[in-house]
Amino acid sequence: MSKHGFFQITQKLFLRDGNLLLVLRDRKSGHGDLPGGRMNEDEFFEDWTESISREISEELGPNIKIEVKPNPIFVYKHRVNEGNHPCIIIAYDAKRIEGKVELSDEHDYMEWVDIKSFDPKKLFSEYMLEAVQLYLKQYA
């Protein structure tokens, strides 16, 4: 008899500025990443947008203003690099309103890439690559 699994939730943003998409690289793993991150236990029964806001201010700094569309655009499987935990990606569409990104020490690289010509295979791997490919197929 199989048992129920326990999975972490990570909320990720496809943050756009026109046709440009913000991509990041995780400092520890060297893999491509998107803004956002794992939900804390005490955030689960609260408004999930607060979890997104916390992650974005931690990762992109206080000077960028963004608008996150409240409904997820898709859900996908993932493994968190740290500990290899199975995880659910909840993906959201977001747009930059104003301000500049100030990377935290979680990431060592960022780029605004053109969604029409970007090849995610150069930066992303595994399930995050599949999620980015799914996004580009639908929205590029």
Rank of each mutant, 00 (worst) to 15 (best):
Asp42Gly: 01
Tyr139Gln: 12
Ser29Arg: 09
Leu103Thr: 03
Ala131Trp: 09
Ser117Trp: 03
Gly61Ser: 02
Phe7Leu: 15
Phe118Val: 05
Asn81Asp: 11
Ala91Asp: 13
Lys77Met: 13
Pro120Tyr: 01
Arg25Gly: 04
Gly37Tyr: 01
His31Thr: 07
Arg54Gln: 07
Ile88Glu: 04
Asp105Gly: 05
Glu126Leu: 14
Arg96Phe: 00
Ser53Arg: 08
Asn40Gly: 07
Asn71Met: 14
Ser51Gly: 12
Ser117Pro: 08
Gln11Cys: 06
His78Ala: 15
Glu98Trp: 10
Lys137Ser: 14
Lys100Val: 13
Ser104Asp: 06
Glu59Leu: 04
Met110Ile: 02
Lys65Met: 13
Ile115Asp: 05
Leu20Ile: 08
Gln11Gly: 00
Lys28Ala: 15
Glu55Asp: 10
Tyr109Trp: 10
Gly36Val: 07
Ser117Gln: 11
Ser53Glu: 07
Gly99Arg: 04
Lys95Gly: 00
Glu130Thr: 10
Ile88Trp: 07
Ile66Trp: 00
Ile88Lys: 03
Gln11Arg: 10
His78Thr: 12
Leu123Ile: 12
Ser125Arg: 15
Gly32Ile: 06
Glu130Met: 07
Asp26Leu: 05
Pro35Arg: 01
Ile115Lys: 06
Asp93His: 15
Val80Gly: 05
Gly37His: 02
Pro86Met: 10
Asp93Pro: 04
Leu15Cys: 05
Ile64Gly: 03
Tyr127Pro: 02
Phe6Val: 14
Asp42Thr: 01
Pro70Met: 01
Leu103Glu: 12
Tyr135Ala: 00
Glu41Met: 12
Gly83Cys: 01
Gly30His: 03
Ala91Met: 07
Ala91Thr: 09
Pro72Lys: 09
Asn40Glu: 15
Asp26Ser: 11
Met1Trp: 02
Leu34Asn: 08
Met110Asp: 08
Ser29Cys: 06
His4Asp: 15
Cys87Phe: 02
Tyr76Pro: 00
Leu34Gly: 12
Asp119Ser: 02
Leu60Glu: 00
Glu50Leu: 13
Lys28Glu: 15
Phe118Ala: 06
Thr49Val: 00
Leu22Asn: 04
Pro86Cys: 11
Asn40Pro: 02
Ser2Arg: 15
Leu21Ser: 02
Val101Gln: 01
Pro62Cys: 13
Ser104Thr: 04
Leu22Pro: 10
Val132Arg: 11
Tyr76Ser: 14
Lys121Ile: 09
Glu55Pro: 03
Arg16Ala: 05
Glu111Thr: 12
Gly5Ser: 15
Met1Ala: 13
Thr49Ala: 04
Leu129Phe: 03
His78Leu: 14
Lys3Met: 13
Glu43Cys: 06
Phe118Glu: 08
Thr49Ile: 06
Lys69Trp: 09
Glu41His: 08
Ser57Gln: 08
Ile90Phe: 13
Ser125Leu: 12
Leu13Ile: 11
Leu13His: 07
Pro70Thr: 01
Gly37Met: 04
Leu60Thr: 01
Ser57Cys: 00
Asp26Tyr: 07
Lys121Trp: 14
Glu111Leu: 13
Gln8Cys: 08
Gln8Val: 07
Leu22Met: 07
Pro62Gly: 09
Glu50Val: 04
Leu129Thr: 10
Leu60Phe: 03
Pro35Cys: 12
Lys65Gly: 11
Ser104Trp: 07
Tyr109Phe: 14
Val101Arg: 02
Gln8Asn: 14
Ala94Tyr: 05
Asp47Leu: 02
Glu67Ala: 10
Phe44Thr: 01
Ser51Asn: 10
Leu134Gln: 11
His31Ile: 12
Val132Trp: 03
Val113Trp: 00
